[in-house]
Design a protein around this nucleic acid. Structure first.
Length: 597
RNA sequence: GGGGACGUAGCUCAGUUGGUUAGAGCGCUGCCCUGUCACGGCAGAGGUCGCGGGUUCGAGCCCCGUCGUCCCCGCCA
């Protein structure tokens, strides 16, 4: 390969093939940079030494595909290019063959900075020639391979599950596939292989995994594509910790491929603690946590500062944040308060510190935050944002609400002051990757729209045995914890899993407590409830987003950088121009009539 | 479904208060050049200012609509 040649090949006769990256024409001497997946090598065409090849090279343009026969030669000391891996050698050409010419591409793969993503997606084959894209594809391959090898080594079997399956009403919107044979009926593409992998456990296949494509017809984001790839796995007889060790194992193997040595086990936090300490269920551990400084306030201080005494007062530390001018600060406070809404206020610690009345309070706040966030030095007068509930705030505002608001603000501030706090800067070590297990998610979620309790995870997740025993399903659904867990990396949810329900009567009870009748449950999940009756082992598993893992490892800002053929924010493939209308013929066969709209 | 940013040469972008012939860099084409590696020099071609409508004596610029790309909220069990 072009990019692999080194000084060790000096004197060897070689044939290399690739794309012309750049051409430098000096008249009687032409240099071609030849590019393939492995890199770039310089070809020399001297009119005196090889007039035929030189003549052909005069017509060669960037992105032509050429084959070159010649001799690898050590460059003169003055001609060595230290910026290239192949910079110590070049190839003296005996014969040059143009295998194919090329139109001038809309953008050059040789350029580092490429702006227009629309063009990149339309001409993806040109974009994929760029070394940056090729590195991402290679990284993705290595990561997937390492995970396969690890899981296989741990006794997991890779088993495929159907793409054409049954629609279930819960969860994300399904992509539907019309059936020709059954008029008016549809398959659905899987949102995940959830029920199939559980059936595999019931089928005695012990340990299953799959690098599985999943489909969700929901609106896109930078980290969400309508089709994406999950590392899906399930095992029998697991504790939560068993699943954690497997995931930590394959992630360690995957990160090793990117030159990162992770240390395991990853830290754990319960959902409740995550909300209290970070105001979010997927905390970014690169940033300091929230500090409830309510206990530092005396009653008189609360009163004179017009603070609601029954609620938390939350301080957000921003290390290394620089002081702002008065004008800047004024605008800043106004902006923050607008975001906080009418029930919360910005408490200016800097002002408190400069008044005799509150100097003591501000010192106590500083100390509390420094201790809580384990910050060595804190000069908090201009480095803290404190959110306090206004006296007479809406009665429905609870602790969790304030933590969540503060959590949002914590992330906004982190983005805004990213240069100053430096927590997002990559060092190229394991320090850049802060993994976290979040456990004990609530089992139910209150749905404001339908005024009903609904699944927080999915309906096959097992509740905590204690909560079941205590009868909380009926008495206090909001307090029931699930044996569900998420794995979080740098504030991004990488994956989610649970220990499943394996007893039919528990499954029935769950459906019942969700207000689902027996008939309804049977209609929706009948085959699955039946399977549970035929000797179901305890089982559990997890699924992780492969695209997201590779995105983070590649340092990319969007999944599109690590997917060969991604879709736009409107779910369009610009290269093949999909989706596209079906012909009348196709529709007729599928028993579909277009609605006039 | 909602909010925001962007759309001018093949590409990246500039274009003042609405004013006469819309510019730059890169790329492209031709010529010159034997040590370049983002080669260099000279010359040249290249525009439905996303699209439609409106205001105006006059619109790249103002207004309305629309399409596309990106980001965010909703949504994503």
């Amino acid at each position: 390969m072009c990019g692999e040649l080194r000084l060790s090949a000096d004197g060897e006769q070689v044939v290399v093939m690739g794309w012309v990256n750049r051409r430098r024409d000096h008249g009687n001497l032409i240099f071609l940079d030849l590019r393939d997946r492995a890199g770039i090598v310089q070809i020399v065409l001297d009119k005196e030494l090889c007039p035929e090849a030189h003549a052909k090279a005069e017509a060669v343009r960037p992105e032509y595909v050429v084959a070159v026969q010649g001799k690898v030669r050590r460059r003169d000391a003055a001609a060595i290019n230290p910026n290239m891996p192949t910079g110590e050698i070049e190839i003296d050409v005996d014969e040059l063959r143009v295998l194919n010419d090329a139109k001038t591409p809309p953008f050059s793969p040789a350029e580092e900075a490429i702006g227009n993503e629309e063009l990149r997606l339309k001409y993806r084959y040109v974009d994929l020639r760029r070394p940056a894209m090729q590195e991402n594809m290679i990284l993705r391959h290595k990561v997937a391979l390492a995970i396969r090898q690890y899981l296989s080594g741990e006794g997991f079997l890779e088993i495929e599950t159907p793409f054409m399956t049954r629609s279930t009403p819960e969860g994300a919107r399904d992509y539907l596939v019309p059936s020709r044979v059954h008029p008016g009926e549809f398959y659905a593409l899987p949102q995940s292989p959830q029920m199939f992998k559980q059936i595999l456990m019931i089928g005695g296949l012990d340990r299953y995994f799959q690098i599985a494509r999943c489909f969700r017809d929901e609106d896109l984001r930078a980290d969400r594509q309508p089709e994406f790839t999950q590392i899906d796995l399930e095992m029998t007889f697991p504790q939560q910790e068993t699943v954690f060790r497997v995931v930590e194992g394959f992630l360690t193997a995957a990160f090793r491929e990117a030159g990162i040595t992770l240390s395991t086990p990853f830290p754990q936090i319960t959902y409740d603690d995550a909300i209290r300490r970070f105001g979010i269920d997927k905390p970014d551990m690169r940033l300091p946590e929230l500090t409830d400084v309510r206990s530092e306030f005396e009653a008189a201080e609360l009163e004179s500062l017009k603070i609601e005494p029954g609620l938390p007062i939350v301080a957000i530390a921003i290390p290394n944040k620089q002081a702002m001018s008065n004008t800047q600060k004024k605008a800043f406070i106004k902006e923050v308060e607008t975001g906080l809404g009418p029930d919360l206020a910005y408490l200016d610690v800097e002002r408190l510190a400069s008044s005799a009345q509150y100097a003591g309070l501000s010192e106590r706040i500083d100390r509390a935050v420094a201790a809580n966030c384990k910050l060595e030095r804190i000069e908090p007068e201009h480095r803290l944002v404190v959110v306090s509930p206004r006296l007479g705030a809406n009665k429905s505002r609870d602790h969790a609400w304030i933590y969540k608001k503060a959590g949002q603000l914590r992330l906004e501030l982190a983005k805004r002051f990213r240069e100053e706090h430096g927590a997002f800067e990559k060092k190229g070590t394991a320090e850049d990757y802060k993994f976290l297990w979040v456990t004990d998610f609530p089992f139910f979620e209150w749905d404001e729209e339908s005024k009903k309790w609904t699944f927080a995870h999915h309906p096959f997740t097992s509740p905590h045995e204690d909560d079941l025993q205590a009868g909380r399903m009926e008495s206090n659904p909001g307090a029931v914890r699930a044996l569900a867990y998420d794995i979080v990396l740098n504030g991004i949810e990488l994956g989610s899993g649970s220990i499943r329900i394996h007893r039919q009567e528990v499954q029935q009870q769950i459906f019942h407590s969700l207000g689902m009748s027996e008939a309804e449950a049977k209609e929706r999940f009948g085959f699955f409830l039946e399977a549970l009756e035929y000797g179901t082992p305890p089982h559990g598993g997890i699924a992780l987003g492969l695209d997201r893992i590779v995105m983070i490892l590649a340092g990319a800002q969007s999944l599109r950088e690590v997917i060969a053929f991604p879709k736009t924010a409107k779910a369009v493939d610009l290269m093949v121009d999909a989706p596209s209308p079906a012909t009348e013929m196709q529709l007729k066969e599928l028993h579909i009539q277009r609605r006039r709209s």
